[in-house]
């Protein structure tokens, strides 16, 4: 199992943070372009999922899956968006996303007086904690399969 990369977007759609662990193939775009496309896709898929839904949705879009990877999505009620790409074996990614939100993002970005909530995250403390957090999760394996 493996975790490929993470994107965090603020409530306005700006990219707060990107990091990759086992990303084997690059998209060939600049990271800004890629982030913009990612946000645009999430925005569309979200509104589509809600529009087309035959019953009342509570959380709406959760993930999509291809033959090779799964994109897990979590949005907080404050519209901060977390996106995690993993292989198809990764389990309980919502739990992990929720933990990243509450135990890493809130602790080391929200409560850090030196970081602004609408600017890309610079905090070394956040970076190290996130890295450690992801690496200790059972879904993370350093070597891609």
């Amino acid at each position: 199992m493996t975790i490929h990369n993470i994107y965090i977007f603020d409530h306005k759609g700006g990219l707060l943070y990107y990091h990759e662990w086992n990303r084997i193939k690059q998209s060939g775009m600049t990271s800004e372009e890629e982030a913009k496309l990612m946000y645009g896709m999430l925005f569309s898929i979200k509104s589509f999922v809600n529009k087309i839904s035959p019953i009342d949705t509570k959380e709406g879009f959760l993930y999509y899956k291809t033959s090779k990877y799964t994109l897990h999505f979590m949005e907080t009620p404050s519209r901060i968006k977390f996106v995690l790409n993993t292989d198809n074996n990764a389990q309980d990614m919502r739990e992990l996303l929720q933990q990243i939100y509450s135990q890493v993002f809130v602790e080391y970005v929200v409560k850090n007086p030196l970081s602004k909530l609408s600017e890309p995250i610079q905090s070394e403390l956040f970076k190290t904690k996130l890295d450690a957090f992801v690496k200790q999760s059972p879904s993370f394996l350093a070597k891609p399969l």
Binding site: K58, E59, T76, P77, S78, I80, Q98, Y101, S102, F105, V106, V110, K111, L117
Partner: peptide, 15 residues
Amino acid sequence: IRIVEDFLSKTGSGR
């Protein structure tokens, strides 16, 4: 704008 994140993350409360 910060405290709300703390609240949401701790309570897991929805909209």
